[in-house]
Nucleic acid binder design. Structure first.
Length: 368
DNA sequence: CAGACGTGGAA
DNA sequence: TTTCCAAGTCT
């Protein structure tokens, strides 16, 4: 930021103070009641911040509670196997987050006696913790007066300052945020900025009439966004192969199994996750078509055909890239499935938590 | 510094 | 229906 600009902002500190007070008052009165709010456990805050990276609050809420119930402490997470951590992350996406969270927990267990470092500078050293997350944890858990800059803050400050999209914007935003963060309540201030971005200062159609700091705003909500690559469409097909377990112990429980395939750990996307075997032909005879789903990954819409395949036909019809396993339905539910596999099995009622004899479909022809 | 990395739900 | 995006990080 130019010297003149900074001096001007310093002369206007009374304005910044006013903005802080308005923002925090609004936050105190309007903040959503989220599971991680009010927790002072740095570990719990850490987990929430990692889960929230590029992921909507609504998608995180339930997963966060399940995760914390299974791994209530950093040590319990550090002691877990990666497969189980990934299983709890299944469907959330960006699985590298889960791996790095796990790795970092093990590192902290080894080198910090299980307690996260307090300073943002030290947090920054841990895998998966970047500028944003380090500042978020340090300010929320320990009151360190550092500002966070996420997508919300970037948008809110761009509009407040009246800056448009340009080079170096990111750096100027960071400097402005650092100047503005409330040294008395940095954690609340940071969350308030993000809450404002999420609830009021929306990317499209901002609710300026509800904005507590509209009086300080230099724009009326205009905000340019970057152009994005166009979506692609790809047709693929997967096999849904179900059999009655050959293991007597499973059969006695009425156990049925689905065939899953392990994605090679060398895959760049979702390595080590479990999915349904891929069919060689994307075309599927209509009488064998079990369901169709659309599944978007990154910039691609996958139009997915799910075909039922008899065990005897699996080798002929599918392309094997990794280890395969017949897995009892109840077991599959606890595995690190890809989002697509979880979606398909859920829609086929194969992951039900109901007793096995209650599992739909009642009609045999629905299954095979 | 681009580009890669997942997903479901809103518009 | 298709697009757009959400509390980023790593390479």
């Amino acid at each position: 930021m130019a010297r003149r600009e900074r001096d001007s902002l310093k002369r206007s500190l009374f304005k910044i103070d006013r903005l802080r007070r308005r923002l925090l008052r609004w936050y105190d009165q309007n903040k959503r009641d989220l599971p991680w709010r009010g927790s002072h456990d740095p570990y719990a805050i850490w987990v929430s911040e990692i889960m929230l990276q590029q992921t909507r609050v609504a998608a995180v809420v339930e997963r966060y509670q399940v995760f914390l119930k299974r791994f209530p402490s950093l040590m319990s997470l550090a002691l877990a196997k990666e497969d189980e951590v990934l299983a709890l992350w299944s469907g959330l996406g960006y699985y590298r987050r889960a791996r790095m969270l796990h790795k970092a927990a093990q590192f902290v267990a080894q080198n910090y006696y299980g307690s996260l470092p307090k300073k943002s500078e030290e947090l920054r050293e841990l895998p998966g913790i970047g500028e944003y997350t380090a500042a978020a944890i340090a300010s929320i858990a320990h009151g360190e007066p550092v500002a966070v800059v996420d997508g919300n803050v970037e948008r809110v400050l761009s509009r407040l300052a009246g800056w448009d999209e340009s080079a170096k914007l990111r750096r100027r935003i960071g400097e402005l945020a650092a100047l503005m963060v409330d040294p008395e309540r940095p954690g609340d201030f940071n969350q308030a900025m993000m809450e404002l971005g999420a609830m009021v200062c929306l990317p499209r159609s901002p609710r300026c009439t509800e904005c507590p700091v509209a009086i300080d705003c230099n724009t009326r909500g205009e905000h340019k966004t970057q152009k994005r690559a166009p979506m692609k469409s790809v047709a693929i097909a997967h096999a849904l192969s179900v059999r009655t377990s050959v293991r007597k112990s499973e059969r006695d429980r009425g156990g049925r199994e689905v065939l899953l395939e392990h994605r090679p750990t060398t895959e760049c996307i979702m390595p080590g996750m479990w999915e349904l075997p891929q069919l060689i032909e994307a075309e599927v005879p209509s009488e064998e078509l079990r369901m169709t789903v659309r599944h978007a990954i990154m910039q691609t819409n996958y139009y997915v055909r799910i075909r039922t395949v008899f065990e005897d036909d699996v080798a002929r019809l599918t392309l094997a890239k990794g280890e395969r396993r017949w897995v009892a339905f109840g077991e599959a539910r606890e595995m690190a499935l890809t989002g697509l596999a979880r979606k398909v099995l859920t829609r086929a009622h194969l992951l039900s938590t109901a007793p096995l004899d209650m599992i739909a479909p009642a009609r045999e022809e629905d299954l095979i």
